[in-house]
Simulated assay, not measured.
Amino acid sequence: MSVFQFKEFLVDQKQSPAKITTDATVFAASIQTSSNFKRALEIGTGTGVLSLMLAQRFHQAQIDAVEINPVAFEESKRNFKNSKWESRLKVLLADFKQYRTNHKYDLIFSNPPFFHNNLQSQTNQGKNTAYHTNHLSFNSLATGLDQNLAEAGEVHIMLPSYEMSLFEEEMKSLGFQCTRSTALRHQVESKIIRFFNVFERGKTEIKKETAEIYLRDENNNFHPSYIKLMKDFLTIF
């Protein structure tokens, strides 16, 4: 589907190497944070869909988005411009490894590349950058997060289970702890598809909050937890 129609906005994804996925939209819909935060940053925005979803949810937020791929940058820029939240959304063509601003962010979120040593495209380098850690390693990601996050800010990251464990070690080495973790499963008994983890500074020896979200119930109908999250976004609800 080259154009995806949400209830309050439209996303053109004809050109972007990374297309809209169910897990990413659930991630954006599930982000819980202080309702009065001012500045947010998305790392690797692709089509811009996650930033658009957060702009819909958090009316006071100014959201910057960093994108390294020129094609995806232009597409997300158009998607932002065509939305009702254009004044609060800005995309920058930049390499996050070199990205620094004069201000710090209250919230940073990302669905980062995570494939490592996997078979890659011989013709589509944009797709390789979007999905593989060739350019943005977990160490580089964690370092950039530390340098751009406000002291009391939160980091929200989506990754598969094993990759999340690796990333969590990188964050711990910089003084961050995982304070909340949400597991996404297709059904209650299915294996975990993704973790949505929240990281904060200086919170040692805490009890991690945990939750689960399911896409389908035992009859393969949409699960109530999925409907609850997505009813403000998807036209099917």
Rank of each mutant, 00 (worst) to 15 (best):
Y99M: 04
S83D: 12
E86A: 14
M53S: 09
L166V: 03
L93M: 10
L141C: 00
N82H: 14
L159T: 05
S83I: 07
Y105T: 03
N111Q: 02
L159S: 04
S137D: 09
P112D: 10
K81H: 13
F114Q: 05
T45S: 09
E75A: 11
D64T: 10
S140R: 05
E67L: 02
N102V: 00
A40D: 03
K81D: 15
L93T: 02
T47K: 10
N134H: 15
N69V: 02
T101R: 05
N139K: 11
M53H: 05
G48K: 14
M171G: 05
S140P: 06
P160C: 06
L136Q: 01
V155D: 05
N139M: 01
N69R: 11
E154R: 13
R78I: 15
D106P: 02
R57F: 07
A40C: 07
Y105W: 09
N139R: 09
A65G: 10
L119M: 10
S83E: 12
F167G: 08
L149C: 09
L52P: 13
Q62L: 05
M171Y: 09
F114H: 00
I43H: 08
P112E: 06
A72I: 03
N111W: 00
A65M: 00
N111P: 07
L92R: 13
N111A: 01
G48S: 13
R39A: 10
A55L: 04
V155C: 08
Y99L: 00
G46C: 04
D146V: 08
W85P: 02
H132F: 13
P112M: 10
L145K: 04
T101E: 02
R39F: 12
E67S: 11
F115I: 05
Q125M: 13
E169P: 00
L145D: 07
H116E: 14
F138D: 06
E86N: 13
K77I: 15
P160D: 04
Y162P: 11
E168F: 04
A150G: 00
L50H: 01
E169K: 05
H59T: 04
V91H: 07
F115Y: 09
V66A: 01
H103F: 04
E75K: 13
R78H: 14
V91K: 04
A40W: 13
Q122G: 09
P160L: 11
K90N: 15
T129K: 03
A40I: 05
E163D: 09
S121P: 10
G48T: 02
I43W: 12
S140C: 07
G46H: 09
E169A: 10
S87M: 09
N79G: 08
L52T: 04
M158L: 12
A72L: 11
S137W: 06
